[in-house]
Design a protein around this nucleic acid. Sequence first.
DNA 1: GGTCGCCTTCACAATCTTTTTACAAATCAC
DNA 2: GTGATTTGTAAAAAGATTGTGAAGGCGACC
Lengths: 226, 226
Amino acid sequence: MKVLLAEDDRHIREGLRDILVAEGYETITACDGREAVRLYLAESPHFVLLDIMMPGASGYEVCREIRGRDPEVPIIFISAKSEEIDRVLGLEMGGDDFIVKPFGVKEVVARIRAVTRRCLRERPTQSMPFTIGDLEVFPAELRARRGENVIELSLREIGILRLLQENRGKVVDRNTFFNRLWGIEHAPNSRTLDQQISKLRQRVEADPANPSLVRTVHGVGYRYDG
Amino acid sequence: MKVLLAEDDRHIREGLRDILVAEGYETITACDGREAVRLYLAESPHFVLLDIMMPGASGYEVCREIRGRDPEVPIIFISAKSEEIDRVLGLEMGGDDFIVKPFGVKEVVARIRAVTRRCLRERPTQSMPFTIGDLEVFPAELRARRGENVIELSLREIGILRLLQENRGKVVDRNTFFNRLWGIEHAPNSRTLDQQISKLRQRVEADPANPSLVRTVHGVGYRYDG
DNA sequence: GGTCGCCTTCACAATCTTTTTACAAATCAC
DNA sequence: GTGATTTGTAAAAAGATTGTGAAGGCGACC
């Protein structure tokens, strides 16, 4: 499931992206309206999160452009001002929902889930708990559990586990991790991934020295054998 | 979307460039084979249009070089020779399609769209499981299986097996291995291939002393008899 | 402000792969 | 058969990748 996130404020954009990634969405980000339209055409995302106030082209214009191409794709507006939201509703821009800043993780997740459920009924629930090996992961709570043990996890750590779990048996290469978890444009130093994996293993592996969930595939990436 | 166009005839080159630009591609042009390789390495285009007859290095050579770097990037050959043999040769070289001169705008556009669509949609070709003898190979998992036995393989080992399987019955000469697996520019010492073959046999052959998948053809290369 | 947790970078060691080397065995040309 | 060439393979060398502790930055929270 692919989502396009258009938001000019870097902090909000990256926060939302982390949430979306942890929810299991392949997330493409745009910093302005023009880029959003371009990426929409190039990537055909399953739905769109759209800030109203953006340089390049406002969310309204982007929405019109997208609606011209596809009248069905779900669009969620983001805005700090509730009067703008009123305008969205009043102008019948064709938005499917809206999120008012400031927002909490739960609110965003709930809105996205509601919209995707409404628009794509067959969609499996995204932030439902999942299991990887003997570990139960609860994305909404940023927690996992093994038997009695409760383990706190970050958004990124959940993203890693989900990516491995979705591709069980297959090797997830390092580039895929960077593209899916960080996004192409802000990929950090390559060693950061190793560090994240190391920390994650120390949290979730029964024996971090002999990982069973996050196995190294030398020269390529990591793998979880289902 | 960036495309590399290599064509020595100025009229055809500029005509094609206009078509490509009109289609919205960022177009880089090369007038001979050597320049094409250089630009490929420098620019990493999303796909390549390649004239077969060029000074510097023929389209075939350029294709080999590119395939050595990236076995996935779509390559469309252009040629004035309509003989079937060229076509076959071209496709075996790892080209994705073929345009015969003289061509119309519509034909070119259709081919380009078809190839880009095909290559964007289906990653499979490269990571699709295949069998060679009694061995099932799963490239996405970097593993193979014979009955109950699971065998871990490296990217290069899978490359060797795939090359042999694709050319079953024919001899794959040593140069082809180097071009396809290493690329002309970083071809190592010739003995490295023997070493790789030796290790591979010890992994995948039921009886490494009597190889059935990777047979030596003295003085030429190796062969897999379908 | 201070503390905390997360993310990132760095440094070094440990580990794993690939390539080269060396020599024995096989094959070929005559 | 003999000698030159090619191939198989163990072992050494070279090279690359990964694991992980330490340190600093940054924002969140109190």
